[in-house]
C-alpha cells in the first residue's frame, strides 16, 4: 500500500510542479495518439463508408478481415512497421524509424481497423431505406454521406473513443518503432515500462496515473460531444 501511496504522492508532485520531462512525455503521448486517431478516423470511417454503402463480391470476407484487424496485436504491427521502415526496408529511405512519426504510423495501423469495424456496424444498423429516403429528398452523394455519418454519430464517436483508447494505452509498437528515446520519442506507456523495469515504481505509478487522467479527459470531451444537444 505504501508503494501505491508513494506513487500517488509522486504523481501529484510531478503534476503540480509541472516537471518538464513528464510534461514533455505527456504532451508527446497526447500529440502522437491524437494524430494517430485523426489519421485512423479519416481512413477508418472512409473504409467503413465504402464497405457499408456498397455491394461487392467478397464484402463479408472484407468485413471479417476488418473485424479480425480490430484485435491486431500491437507487437505484430510494431514488427511489421519496423521491417518496413528499417534502413534497408522498402520504406527505409524515409528515415523515420525511431521517430514520433513512426509511432503515429504504427498507432494509426492499430486504430484504423477498430474505427473501420465499428463504423461498418454503426452504418449497417441504420434503417436500410434511410439511404433511399435521403436521396429522394434531393441529396447529392456528398450530402448523403454526411447525413448518414450524422445519423450514426453516437456509435461513430464510440468508435473514435475505442480507437483513441487502443492507441494511448498501447506500448509494444511504440517501443519497437519509437525506440523510447529520452526527450524525443518517449511516451507515457514506454516510459512506464522503463521505470517499472528499473524498479522506480513511484515514478511508474505517477506516469500511469497521468495516462489514466489523459485517457479520461479525452474520453470525457468525446462523451460530451456525443451526448450534447439531444432534443427531448
Amino acid at each position: 500500500m505504501g508503494l501505491i501511496w508513494e506513487g500517488i504522492k509522486e504523481a501529484l508532485r510531478l503534476l503540480f510542479t509541472l516537471d518538464p520531462e513528464v510534461l514533455k512525455i505527456t504532451l508527446l503521448s497526447l500529440k502522437v495518439s491524437v494524430l494517430a486517431t485523426l489519421v485512423s478516423l479519416f481512413l477508418g470511417i472512409g473504409a467503413g463508408l465504402l464497405i457499408a454503402l456498397n455491394r461487392f463480391p467478397g464484402k463479408h470476407l472484407i468485413i471479417s478481415l476488418v473485424n479480425t484487424g480490430m484485435g491486431l496485436p500491437p507487437v505484430v504491427v510494431g514488427l511489421f512497421v519496423t521491417i518496413m521502415l528499417w534502413r534497408n526496408g522498402p520504406l527505409g529511405f524515409f528515415e523515420i524509424l525511431y521517430t514520433p512519426t513512426a509511432i503515429v504510423i504504427a498507432q494509426a495501423i492499430i486504430a484504423t481497423p477498430i474505427i473501420a469495424g465499428i463504423s461498418v456496424a454503426a452504418l449497417q444498423q441504420l434503417p436500410p431505406n434511410l439511404r433511399l429516403q435521403i436521396l429522394s429528398l434531393g441529396a447529392t452523394r456528398r450530402q448523403l454521406v454526411w447525413l448518414l455519418v450524422q445519423e450514426a454519430r453516437l456509435p461513430l464517436l464510440a468508435a473514435v473513443m475505442a480507437g483513441f483508447g487502443g492507441v494511448i494505452s498501447e506500448v509494444g509498437a511504440s517501443i519497437m518503432v519509437g525506440g523510447n528515446i529520452k526527450g524525443y520519442s518517449r511516451v507515457l506507456t514506454t516510459a512506464t515500462v522503463m521505470e517499472t523495469s528499473k524498479g522506480n515504481f513511484d515514478v511508474a505509478i505517477a506516469l500511469s496515473l497521468i495516462l489514466l487522467l489523459l485517457a479520461f479527459s479525452v474520453n470525457a470531451v468525446l462523451t460530451y460531444l456525443q451526448q450534447r444537444k439531444r432534443p427531448r
Partner: peptide
C-alpha cells in the same frame, strides 16, 4: 436523374426521420 430527384420525393412505410427535432 439527380435534378429530377430534387423535384419529386418519396415517403416510405417507415417514417425514416432524422435524430433531430
Amino acid at each position: 436523374r439527380y435534378l429530377y430527384r430534387r423535384r419529386v420525393t418519396l415517403v416510405f412505410q417507415e417514417s425514416l426521420l432524422f435524430d433531430a427535432t
